Amino acid sequence: MIEIKNLTKQYGNKNVVDNVSFNIERGKITSLIGPNGAGKSTLLSMIAPILERDWGQVLIDGKEMKEWDSKEFAKKVAILKQSNNINIRLTIKELVEFGRYPHCEGKLTKEDKIHVNKAIEYMKIKDIENKYLDELSGGQRQRAYIAMVIAQNTEYILLDEPLNNLDMKHSVQMMKVLRNLVDELQKTVVIVMHDINFASCYSDNIVILKDGKLIKNSDTDSIINKELLEEIYEIDFDIKNINGNKICVYFCNEYCKRREI
Rank of each mutant, 00 (worst) to 15 (best):
V17N: 01
N15V: 07
I215Y: 10
G27H: 02
L158V: 05
L90W: 07
E3G: 05
N23H: 00
L59S: 07
F198G: 03
N205R: 02
K93L: 03
M174A: 14
G37N: 05
R26W: 00
D236I: 09
I79E: 00
E72D: 15
Y11F: 15
E227M: 08
I196R: 02
L228N: 09
Q10G: 08
L163A: 15
D160K: 06
Y233F: 13
K169P: 01
L158A: 09
N36H: 05
E161P: 09
L51E: 09
G138Y: 05
I242F: 13
N205V: 01
E72M: 13
D54Q: 03
P162G: 10
K75F: 11
H194D: 14
K110C: 03
N217W: 00
D238H: 13
L159P: 14
D236Y: 06
A119H: 04
K176E: 15
L158D: 09
C104F: 10
K14F: 13
K63C: 06
W68Q: 02
N164E: 12
V182E: 01
C104H: 15
V249H: 11
A199N: 04
L185P: 11
D219V: 12
K71L: 14
L133Q: 06
T109D: 02
E64P: 06
L44T: 03
K240D: 15
E67G: 01
R258M: 14
K226W: 04
I196A: 04
V116S: 01
R100C: 10
E155V: 11
E97H: 02
N130E: 13
Q57M: 06
V17C: 02
S218E: 14
E111P: 07
K176F: 04
Q82W: 00
P49W: 03
V249F: 13
D69Q: 11
S45R: 15
G106Q: 02
G62I: 07
Y233V: 06
R143A: 04
N153P: 08
K113P: 02
I191Y: 07
T220G: 05
K93M: 09
G39P: 06
K63Y: 07
N243G: 14
L32D: 03
E67D: 12
I224Y: 05
K226N: 12
F73I: 14
N180P: 10
R89F: 09
E3H: 11
A38F: 01
L7P: 04
D204P: 09
D160P: 00
Y255V: 15
I29T: 00
M65N: 11
G37L: 09
V172W: 06
